[in-house]
Amino acid sequence: MGRAIKGKRPVNKSRHQQKTQAQLAELFRRETAHRKTLHGQLANQVIAIGIHIHTEKLSYQSFQKMYGKSVSVRAPRTFLSIVTRKAESAGGYVDEFPTRTTALSQVCICGRRRKKRLSERVHACTCGVIAQRDLFSAFLARHVKDNVLQVTEAYESWSGAEPLLQTAWRQAINQPASGRQMLSSFGVPESERVV
């Protein structure tokens, strides 16, 4: 055989290469099956809480650009499709609304809008509202109708929701975690972390 041409792969594979590729394919198959099982369990937990789900419509391509292969390992789009299927079979629905029109991570119940860096994990407004950013966005998502955030409706229901969100935030702080990354992404100050 002559020298290898750049960009061309050899057609004939050795037995060792064939065996390695078969082992790799089996590992990928197992990983996919395990991920599907975990997604199914988490989807069941979500459906047990409620069958009417409101979520932001996310760009999974931008996730891929930002986080690379870790997105394919976690497969968020696959998870959402499982939740959608289970919600519909239970008589519910999944409502996806655009982030551009709602901007839940930037809006407060008082109507103010302030762009935050991704590292800012706590929503703190001059009107006095302080909450964990993701929990607060989830609360606001409840009040999106026809792709528009109903600020007045969110303001009126805030007094009942605030203690629940604060309790959920405290539980996340006091829950032992496998690593510091989860706690820091949840907006837990270093001094309050229990690891």
Results as ranks from 00 to 15, higher is better:
50 G>D: 02
93 Y>S: 12
133 R>C: 03
76 P>V: 02
128 G>V: 06
83 V>R: 06
139 F>K: 02
117 R>A: 13
144 V>H: 01
121 R>L: 07
133 R>A: 04
17 Q>G: 01
14 S>L: 07
152 T>C: 10
171 Q>F: 08
178 S>R: 15
59 S>E: 01
31 E>Y: 04
148 V>C: 10
174 N>H: 14
36 K>I: 00
88 E>R: 15
34 H>D: 07
135 L>G: 05
67 Y>T: 00
130 I>R: 12
20 T>K: 15
161 A>K: 06
75 A>S: 12
131 A>F: 09
39 H>K: 01
166 Q>N: 05
126 T>P: 12
11 V>T: 13
135 L>K: 05
90 A>V: 03
99 T>Q: 13
109 I>G: 04
107 V>R: 15
154 A>D: 07
153 E>F: 12
136 F>E: 01
143 H>C: 03
35 R>H: 02
124 A>R: 14
49 I>K: 08
121 R>F: 09
86 K>M: 11
23 Q>N: 12
27 L>E: 05
24 L>F: 09
80 L>I: 02
18 Q>I: 12
155 Y>T: 04
64 Q>P: 00
123 H>S: 02
12 N>V: 15
110 C>R: 04
172 A>D: 03
163 P>F: 10
52 H>G: 00
178 S>P: 14
47 I>V: 03
169 W>R: 07
43 A>W: 07
174 N>D: 14
153 E>A: 14
7 G>D: 06
122 V>F: 07
105 S>Q: 10
192 E>S: 12
86 K>R: 10
138 A>L: 04
93 Y>A: 11
108 C>G: 09
65 K>I: 02
8 K>R: 15
108 C>M: 06
24 L>P: 00
140 L>R: 04
61 Q>P: 00
111 G>A: 07
9 R>A: 10
71 V>K: 02
30 R>C: 06
164 L>A: 07
76 P>D: 02
181 Q>G: 11
74 R>S: 09
136 F>T: 01
47 I>S: 03
103 A>Q: 14
44 N>K: 13
101 T>R: 14
7 G>V: 06
122 V>Q: 09
24 L>V: 01
186 F>S: 06
120 E>C: 09
101 T>C: 09
169 W>C: 02
56 E>S: 02
149 L>D: 01
70 S>M: 03
36 K>G: 01
86 K>Q: 10
54 H>F: 04
9 R>W: 11
22 A>Y: 10
194 V>P: 04
125 C>N: 07
63 F>Y: 13
1 M>H: 12
171 Q>Y: 09
38 L>M: 07
63 F>G: 01
92 G>N: 03
33 A>M: 13
40 G>F: 06
179 G>K: 11
62 S>N: 10
116 K>A: 06
104 L>H: 03
190 E>Y: 12
172 A>L: 14
73 V>L: 11
155 Y>D: 08
5 I>P: 05
71 V>I: 08
188 V>P: 09
96 E>T: 05
146 D>L: 05
142 R>V: 00
195 V>N: 14
121 R>N: 04
29 R>T: 04
111 G>M: 08
28 F>R: 11
34 H>S: 08
125 C>A: 10
92 G>H: 05
4 A>W: 14
190 E>M: 08
127 C>K: 09
102 T>K: 03
102 T>A: 05
